[in-house]
Amino acid sequence: MRFDLVADNWVMFAEGAWMTVQLTALSLLIGFCIALPAGLIRARRIRILSPLINIYVYAFRGTPLLVQLFLVYYGLSQFEAVRDSFAWPVLREAYWCALITFSLNSGAYATEIIRGAIETVPKGELEAAKSLGLSPRKVDFLVLIPSALRRALPQYGNEVVFMLHGSVVASVITIQDILGAGRTLNARYYIAYEGFLTAAALYMSITFVLVFAFRMLERRYLRHLRVSH
């Protein structure tokens, strides 16, 4: 065991951890911004828009994240038209390719989570709001969406952990994330166990923090659903 080599390279692992955390967080944030309106449109079955979103969700949930990333990173760059276009300064960067792919991927999964949550909001809650004289817009923003988001918490917590673990594919397109640091250690000293074990420990620590945070959120926002003895 040569964990001293891990210690010598702790800066690389720290930078990798920061890259993983911020890439995951930004992807989730952008994904959520896509998913909230998209989920609402799907739940309301709004014409034209709803089938289009359905296609998007199917495409991103139906293919592996790594394949999506390869299509965006290596696939698009193959076409001269793309390389000459205004989008190239963005698509040239591995970081932006990863952020775009991860956001769209997370957005697709979150859309379905939010759609499901909106559809399962009890009719009684909405009728009660209506009977209080709230306008349809106020019912949406004060009752429907907050109630749906609360219900979506446990499932969305899973999606956050999946996104964190899915972000490892960034290391195959040159991004130095946690796994990238582990792979560098492996390639430089030919020690696999120490570097990958360190990477696993880092992912696990971040996961613990996330799971704990979601448990706290659930405890706070789903208090009314808990069975008390």
Partner: peptide, 26 residues
């Protein structure tokens, strides 16, 4: 500048050309 991750060229670039942006590949 692209280099293969963990090779002598990776270490060399880090040490001798600190002002270039390194891109690491498998």
């Amino acid at each position: 500048v692209g280099v293969q991750r963990g090779t002598i060229h990776h270490s060399f670039m880090e040490g001798v050309f600190p002002n270039v942006e390194l891109v690491l590949y498998g």
